[in-house]
């Protein structure tokens, strides 16, 4: 990946702001869903969909596309927002999120939503699915890559570590895992519910190349992904230090916004902070 211009970085940051506005409005209109973990992952997902991934919105099933596996399925608002803005389906459809007869299910459904690569919701299955994809790409001698976005809560799940073992066994360097390390899961701080640190050491011990970045710094995200591409013989995990609810002051680092939508008043304040004119 070539050096990224400042203009490109600004553009990506603007996109991320736009996606955050979508996330807030999508969860607000139905008064449910998971804004906090969508906003913490927002810069990573933006970087992937608007700079890194080789995907074709007009041909979502293009066989040689890169695959993005959202393992933390509850963060699907950010994925849907990115897919809509990328042209996989109309942006206004975002406001059908979690409504009856919608293509945008409360957790991702495979085969229904254009661009969605896996079903997720029950935690901890995505990395294994990504291993399967990576093995298939290798068997077919294809250059497409797999990116799996994991929550830090998913580090509690045994299957995550089963997948970690398998990816290392098969030296899957076409697989990059990114952990949205926002430090909060449904019921509180990860270090109180189920301590994870030293998380990087754990992944290193499982045979992975480990990078740690600030998951809200576009330059660091792109550099990390770049480094993952050039690292051979091992899968890479990028531990992205993030803030739950990132981008809206009163939502940041607040456990409640894991699974709670904003009120009418909060939405106005939040959108104003993100620089969107309130209707």
């Amino acid at each position: 990946m070539a050096e990224v211009s400042n203009a490109k970085l600004r553009e990506l940051e603007d996109r991320a702001r736009l996606l955050r506005c979508h996330i807030l409005k999508m969860t607000h209109q139905v008064q449910s869903g998971h804004p906090g973990g969508s906003m913490s992952a927002c810069d990573i997902v933006t970087a992937l969909y608007f700079h890194v991934l080789r995907v074709d919105p007009r041909n979502p099933m293009w066989p040689d596309r890169d695959r993005f596996v959202l393992s933390k399925g509850h963060a699907c608002p950010v994925l849907y927002a990115a897919l809509a803005e990328r042209g996989f389906f109309p942006v206004p459809e975002l406001m059908t999120f979690r409504r009856i007869n919608s293509r945008l299910q409360g957790h991702p459904e495979y085969g229904t939503t254009p661009g969605v690569e896996n079903a997720a919701g029950a935690e901890g299955q995505g990395l294994s699915f990504g291993v399967g994809l990576g093995l298939a790409a290798r068997l077919d001698r294809k250059a497409w890559r797999v990116y799996a976005l994991l929550g830090d809560g998913e580090q509690d799940v045994g299957q995550t570590w089963e997948a970690a073992l398998a990816a290392a066994k098969y030296h899957l360097d076409n697989l990059t895992a990114i952990i949205d390390r926002n430090g909060i899961q449904q019921e509180g701080r990860t270090e109180e519910i189920m301590p994870l640190e030293p998380l990087g050491d754990k992944w290193r011990a499982f045979g992975w190349n480990v990078l740690t970045i600030n998951g809200h710094d576009m330059r660091q995200i792109l550099a990390g992904i770049d480094e993952a591409h050039s690292h051979k013989g091992q899968p890479t995990v990028i531990i992205a230090k993030t803030t739950k609810g990132k981008g809206v002051s009163f939502m940041e680092n607040v456990v409640r916004y894991h699974g709670a939508a904003t009120t009418d008043e909060e939405l106005k304040r939040a959108l104003a902070e993100l620089g969107e004119a309130v209707p």
């Binding site: 294994s128 699915f129 994809l133 093995l135 045994g158 299957q159 997948a163 073992l165 398998a166």
Partner: peptide, 20 residues
């Protein structure tokens, strides 16, 4: 994939999603 049957099923699903 060793004694990791959950992993086995999801890996098989990933392989299937890529045309296997």
């Amino acid at each position: 994939v060793g004694i990791s049957e959950q992993n086995m099923i999801s890996i098989a699903a990933g392989l299937a999603a890529a045309g296997k």
